[in-house]
Simulated scan of single mutants.
Amino acid sequence: MFPGGRKRAGESERRCLRREISEELPKLRLGPMKLWKEVKGTNRRSGRKMSDAIFVAKKASGPLKIGDKKEIDKAAWRKPRGIRLTPTSRYIRDKHFPR
C-alpha cells in the first residue's frame, strides 16, 4: 500500500506528504516531488468521500526504518507486480508501470 494520511488544518498537500513520510518512515529522503494527479471518488463500501493528491518523487534514498509501529508494521521495496494493492494503488501502478 502506498503511504497515506490526512491533511491538518491549513496544511498543503505537499507539506502533508512530507510530514506523513517523516512520521512513518523518518529515515527516507525524497527528492523533488511533483503533483501527478488528484483523484476524487466515493468509497463503494462505506460511501465516504475520498480525495487523493498523488505525488511522484524522482529520487528516494535512505533505509525504510519504521517510525510509528501503530501505523506501519513492515516496509519493503517491492517490484510493482505480484503484490496485493488497494484500488487507488493499483491505478497508480498501472499508469506508471503499464504491462
Rank of each mutant, 00 (worst) to 15 (best):
P3W: 06
P3Q: 09
P3M: 08
G4D: 12
G4N: 14
G4Q: 14
R6S: 09
R6H: 12
R6W: 11
K7S: 09
R8N: 10
R8F: 02
R8A: 05
R8E: 13
A9C: 02
C16Y: 02
C16Q: 03
R19I: 01
R19G: 00
I21R: 13
I21F: 13
E24R: 02
E24C: 00
L25P: 02
P26K: 06
K27C: 02
K27H: 06
K27D: 09
R29C: 01
L30D: 10
G31E: 11
G31P: 05
G31D: 04
M33P: 03
K34D: 04
W36I: 03
W36K: 08
K37S: 04
K37F: 03
E38G: 00
K40P: 04
K40C: 04
K40M: 09
G41S: 12
G41H: 13
T42R: 15
R44C: 05
R45W: 14
R45D: 15
S46D: 12
G47Y: 14
G47L: 13
R48V: 10
R48T: 08
R48H: 14
K49N: 11
M50P: 01
S51V: 07
S51F: 12
D52I: 04
A53F: 15
A53R: 13
I54F: 03
I54M: 03
I54V: 14
F55L: 01
V56C: 05
A57Y: 04
A57R: 07
K58M: 06
K58D: 13
K58A: 14
K58W: 06
K58E: 15
A60V: 09
A60G: 07
A60S: 13
G62D: 06
P63K: 13
L64E: 08
K65P: 01
I66D: 08
I66Y: 07
I66L: 00
G67P: 00
G67C: 00
K69V: 04
K69F: 06
K70Y: 00
K70F: 00
I72R: 03
D73I: 10
A75C: 11
A76T: 08
A76I: 05
W77I: 05
R78T: 09
K79V: 07
K79H: 06
P80V: 02
P80F: 04
R81E: 03
G82F: 04
G82P: 11
I83M: 08
I83H: 12
R84Q: 11
R84V: 06
L85D: 06
L85C: 05
T86A: 11
T86N: 14
T86C: 04
T88L: 15
T88G: 05
R90C: 01
R90N: 04
R90T: 05
Y91T: 01
Y91R: 07
I92H: 06
I92M: 09
I92T: 11
R93F: 01
R93Y: 03
D94L: 07
D94P: 13
K95F: 10
H96Y: 08
P98L: 14
P98H: 15
R99A: 11
R99C: 01
R99M: 09
